[in-house]
Design a protein around this nucleic acid. Structure first.
Lengths: 190, 190
DNA sequence: TACTATACGGAGGAATCCTCCGTTTGCAAG
DNA sequence: CTTGCAAACGGAGGATTCCTCCGTATAGTA
């Protein structure tokens, strides 16, 4: 789904292979334990030395961002698909729900990554902007249809949905997540 | 303001004194660095050994909770004061804003503590429940006045405000915090 | 096959956490 | 005031995790 994992410039075959092994191990670990992954464990799971992990991902943040990158790309694609298929408000609401699902799946790493300030022009920065812009199209459609207030913007909406995920992280309670989300949707309606 | 720091049972004078020194140092540190405090630093600032710190607060969570306890008590008092002084909706909104201010001040520790599952009957659990109940009175009043939807409850409302604080932690942007909060308020109105 | 730029791997130093236990001290009883 | 001891102190040090550094191995090329 979406453009396969972004490959860096020309590298030796073993480097490329290890890069992907590490990323795969990190994705699994993040899904299980969230941002509290132990980097030495990732390296062991990937079957590489800790030095290799640090060469590919110099900081913890780098690894987490790479883990999240594919999801950002997929969320962008999903936004575009929804724009083609579904009525404006339903599309917007459906996409925001996807944000929460992805966020919960990644144990809120998505939210943490989204909100961090990224280097200008970095892959993750580009992916986040692309995702947000794709969402903004959905918002614009719903506003043009007169269904959503004009003074809402996508940045606030994304932050709020991520906030719901963050605040519900320990007390995993889908019932409450739904009612909070519904409350937010009520707030953006015209 | 509010009942002074909750003192434990009969203790030796030095124990009581150190308990308070540690707590004071922890409050300062949390205000500055949030939940990432280094416990050895706290002990040094308080002028006690690390062993003493751990005797009084066996786990990091214990210390953070104690740090937050006074704030919870004060928020309870503020809710009661607002109930006496102000129109129902304004009181509710004002109190929720206080929640966010306190949360931001404590670097989101409040939210983290509130959402953690506490031992039944522990001081922090009691304080959180007391605070929430006091807030629920404000909500009830606004609902009775027909200004707020009946299907809203205080748990969701608190989580949402804490979610806003959490999601805005890095990108400290008061403008956006306000607009998200306003959006939530719009969502609870009738 | 030989050469070298590239990549690998893990030992080990630093930061932080937390426990354990020998030493000190408040305070109550005599 | 002394004495006795439960209560409290404090910090050395083991465990965990992070991250760097550098000697070793190898992919790709000529």
């Amino acid at each position: 789904m979406s453009q396969a994992s972004v490959t860096k410039g020309p590298r030796r075959a073993d480097a490329q292979r290890n890069y992907e092994l590490i990323l795969a191990a990190a994705r699994t670990a993040v899904a299980e334990r969230g941002g509290n992954i132990v980097l030495e464990d990732i390296a062991r799971d990937a079957g590489v030395g800790i030095g290799t992990l640090y060469r590919h991902f110099p900081t913890r943040q780098d690894l987490l961002e790479a883990t999240f990158l594919n999801e950002a790309l997929e969320l962008k694609d999903r936004a575009r698909a929804l724009a083609d298929e579904t009525a404006s408000l339903e599309a917007l609401v459906g996409w925001l729900r996807l944000q929460m699902d992805f966020g919960a799946h990644g144990r809120s790493m998505g939210a943490a990554v989204m909100n961090a300030k990224h280097t200008e022009g970095s892959p993750i920065q580009t992916a986040c902007l692309g995702m947000r812009d794709a969402g903004a199209v959905l918002l614009r459609r719903a506003q043009d249809d007169g269904l959503v207030r004009e003074d809402i913007d996508m940045i606030d909406l994304l932050r709020l949905t991520h906030g719901i995920v963050l605040a519900s992280e320990q007390a995993r309670d889908n019932q409450r997540v739904d009612s909070m989300f519904e409350l937010v949707i009520a707030g953006i309606r015209r």
